[in-house]
């Protein structure tokens, strides 16, 4: 079984005072174990709604979501699913429960009924994986945004998940906080083999993924490697999305008549290609 997540024909509607909003519209996709997937799409395209389906915070109105083969509709799997698929939210302040860093990291394992000696071990490991050991006795409100978000990630790692879903984890951070968080996520993916689903508005972050999924109106409109997706500049712009700066530059140079390949993603590649001209 090498599938982490299977989403099949999922439809979800929010009902608010008789008004219905279809947030997901017959969406289907799969995520393999160990994959790093980025989901992009403009505001209201259904990304957060999708994320909440992946650990049974929301249940599909139609269709099925399976996490490691466990259907989120079956109640008996609920806690297993939430342990396997951890979630990190956008606002670092609103997901830290305890008044001391180490207690917050322990919150998940405590809920799982892990025995105290093992909780301590897990807390130590998780804090060292996010590089926050020296802050273990601090109060969370004294930390920077990036640090808080790393604590939130540590809190999820301590539950030993196989997959972490991050819903715009860097949206409220400054550039250095954003880099810290991205570095941590990449490390977890590469060294621990944890499957990552990163929802983001920053194209520079999406470039780092193995695969990019573009959502629009509750469905997937584009999907592929960052190279494949970002070479379609026109289409992304139509969808109201930014493209990475380098891609934008390529696009403009090309339309000015300079001969460059479509799929340049990094500054280094750009330099290489420009030096090769003529």
């Amino acid at each position: 079984m090498d599938k982490m997540i299977q989403v099949e024909n999922v439809t979800f509607e929010y009902t608010n005072n008789e008004k219905q909003v279809i947030a997901l519209n017959k969406i289907s996709f799969e995520v393999k174990k160990g994959e790093f997937v980025a989901i992009i799409g403009h505001n209201g395209s259904g990304k957060s709604t999708m994320a909440k389906h992946l650990n049974a915070l929301l249940l599909p109105s139609e269709g099925d979501v399976r996490v490691q083969g466990m259907n989120t509709k079956e109640e008996e799997y609920l806690w297993d699913i939430r342990q396997v698929a951890g979630m990190v939210f956008q606002n670092p302040d609103n997901q830290i429960v305890a008044t001391i860093v180490e207690e917050d990291v322990a919150f998940g394992p405590e809920n799982l009924g892990v025995k105290p000696s093992e909780i301590i071990e897990r807390v130590n490991n998780s804090l060292s994986q996010v590089d926050m050991e020296e802050y273990r006795h601090k109060a969370p409100h004294l930390l920077s945004g990036g640090q808080k978000q790393r604590i939130a990630i540590a809190g999820v790692i301590a539950m030993k998940p196989h997959c972490i879903i991050l819903d715009e984890p860097t949206a409220m951070l400054d550039p250095s906080g954003r880099r810290e968080v991205m570095k941590t996520i990449k490390k977890l993916n590469e060294e621990e083999g944890i499957t990552i689903i990163n929802i983001t508005h920053f194209m520079e972050e999406a470039v780092e993924a193995d695969r990019v999924i573009v959502m629009e109106e509750g469905n997937i409109v584009l999907e592929g490697t960052p190279r494949e997706v970002f070479s379609q500049v026109e289409k992304l712009k139509e969808l109201g999305l930014d493209v990475p700066q380098v891609t934008e530059l390529t696009h403009q140079l090309k339309s000015a008549g300079i001969d460059l390949p479509d799929d340049i993603l990094t500054v280094d590649e750009m330099v290489m290609n420009i030096c090769r001209l003529k």
Partner: peptide, 13 residues
């Protein structure tokens, strides 16, 4: 999302 369900089956660090 972090499996909180009151104090059923909960341990403390």
């Amino acid at each position: 999302a972090r499996c909180y369900r009151g104090d059923t089956n909960r341990t403390r660090m």
